[in-house]
């Protein structure tokens, strides 16, 4: 069960917003890069989310753009516990699962910035504790669910010595 405050943003949030290309080539130190997460959209993102954690809530097509895996990694390192969006760009979605960042496709219209959320990944439901509402979502395809359960693709390979899906 994941429980944290919602930080809400809009549609079509691209990977350059999540982590600008000018940082991604500088270093492989994700802790250092995480302070720039979402910077061009919300310069305060890291400062707001890092202390107590947060759930990033967005509209459609979250993570559009580049294949940079630094995008889910800087979110993880900024203490983002999960991302909820109406839809995701496909490379970001895979990268999130592979690196162990829970991503949930669901209706995010009824979530406001600051709402307290609880995500039940197995049960397929987001509970909005502030509003007292529940948002159901379709579970991940079995392959992705297994990769996430194993802790990402690296851990899956370590455990099984290759693809075991």
């Amino acid at each position: 069960m994941i429980r944290a405050r919602a930080f809400k943003y809009g549609d079509d949030i691209n990977t350059d917003y999540i982590i600008s290309g000018k940082y991604k080539f500088k270093s492989a130190d994700m802790e250092a890069m995480a302070v720039h997460a979402m910077e061009d959209l919300d310069p305060e993102y890291y400062a707001k989310v890092k202390p107590a954690g947060g759930i990033l809530v967005a509209g459609k097509n979250f993570g559009m753009g580049s294949s940079r895996e630094q995008a889910p990694l800087v979110l993880i390192h900024s203490n983002t516990k999960a991302v909820l969006a109406k839809s995701f760009a496909r490379i970001f979605f895979r990268n999130a699962i592979n690196t162990g960042l829970p991503v949930v496709e669901c209706d995010t219209d009824r979530i406001d910035d600051g709402d307290e959320l609880e995500i039940d990944l197995e049960g397929g439901v987001v509970r909005n504790l502030t509003k007292g509402t529940e948002i159901p979502f379709a579970p991940l395809p079995p392959v992705m669910a297994q990769l996430l359960a194993d802790g990402g693709l690296v851990e899956h390979f370590k455990k099984h010595g290759g693809f075991a899906v």
């Binding site: 294949s67 940079r68 895996e69 490379i91 895979r94 990268n95 592979n98 690196t99 392959v143 990402g152 693709l153 690296v154 390979f157 290759g162 693809f163 899906v165």
Partner: peptide, 18 residues
């Protein structure tokens, strides 16, 4: 098709990907 680095690593290691 474009993939992330971990997918790329899995493909470099095994010659396969899902």
């Amino acid at each position: 098709t474009g993939v992330g680095s971990t997918d790329g690593a899995a493909a470099m290691a095994s010659g396969k990907l899902w």
